[in-house]
């Protein structure tokens, strides 16, 4: 299948050597939303979380300190740009690299918090992200071996052999793990129990949009 049946008319391409980025209305929508959110993240300040304290009647306020704020904002902006790039890339391996970048940034955004439960889930998610390098890169390499190309424009015109299906299944499990959907939800969900909602939102946004984009890519590869 080609781009047009999936995402609408091809609006244009950005050639960077072998890696050709392409834009259809579908990609453009995702890209624009991500960039818009990134802009909002760059502008906004984090909230103050109010929590009840144990054993007495006071409230505690959880805030993001000034040092953490700078680091997190930087990482979130990069994360937004990286996921925006993943939305329009036209190369299989390039996409997996974008995913790896988003994964490590997701860990980085919550790495500076004090809550040990959050760090615990960040660590466990990190383990998954590391393991994901095998299914992601390996899946892309298997598809490369079977078809001789990594460009989505060419892959979309090719029929799927069992080997391509296997590579796509590998990639799918990599994507599931990296973006933390069920049944692997627990590791990622705990990461959201910390202050700094503008930065936390990009973690969720990037993983959701990467699923959306990944399914488009898998459809392109398989049919």
């Amino acid at each position: 299948m080609d781009f047009v049946t999936l995402g609408g008319n091809l609006l244009g391409t950005i050639p960077l050597g072998d890696i050709v980025l392409y834009v259809t209305p579908f990609n453009l929508f995702l890209f624009a939303v991500l960039l818009g959110f990134t802009l909002l993240i760059a502008l906004s300040k984090p909230e103050t979380q109010v929590e009840a304290t144990m054993h007495n009647l006071n409230n505690t306020e959880v805030k993001v300190g000034p040092k953490e704020f700078k680091q997190r904002r930087f990482l979130s902006i990069i994360c937004g740009i990286a996921s925006a790039g993943a939305m329009i890339t036209g190369d299989l391996f390039n996409f997996t690299l974008f995913m790896a970048l988003v994964g490590i940034l997701n860990i980085g955004i919550v790495s500076a918090v004090k809550q040990t439960t959050v760090l615990n889930s960040a660590f466990n998610y990190g383990l998954i992200a590391m393991m994901c390098s095998l299914p992601l890169f390996g899946g892309a390499a298997i598809i490369l071996a079977a078809t001789g190309t990594l460009s989505l424009a060419v892959l979309s015109q090719m029929p799927a052999s069992p080997m391509v299906v296997f590579g796509a299944v590998l990639m799918l499990i990599g994507i599931l793990g990296e973006s933390g959907v069920a049944p692997f939800f627990a590791s990622k969900a705990e990461m959201f129990r910390t202050a700094g909602s503008p930065f936390i939102v990009i973690i969720h946004l990037s993983s959701l949009f990467i699923i959306v984009r990944a399914v488009e890519i898998l459809l392109l590869v398989l049919w």
Binding site: L16, G17, D18, I19, K67, Q71, F74, L75, I78, A82, T89, D91, F93, N94, L97, F98, A100, L101, I104, L105, I107, G108, S111, A112
Partner: peptide, 27 residues
């Protein structure tokens, strides 16, 4: 050249992980 974008990403990944690690270790 032909796959330069990959290398940008690759080096960005390295850079980000070093930022994370060095931030944690310094602070």
């Amino acid at each position: 050249y032909t796959r330069g974008f990959d290398t940008i990403l690759e080096s960005s990944i390295l850079m980000m992980s070093f930022i994370i690690a060095s931030w944690l270790s310094i602070n």
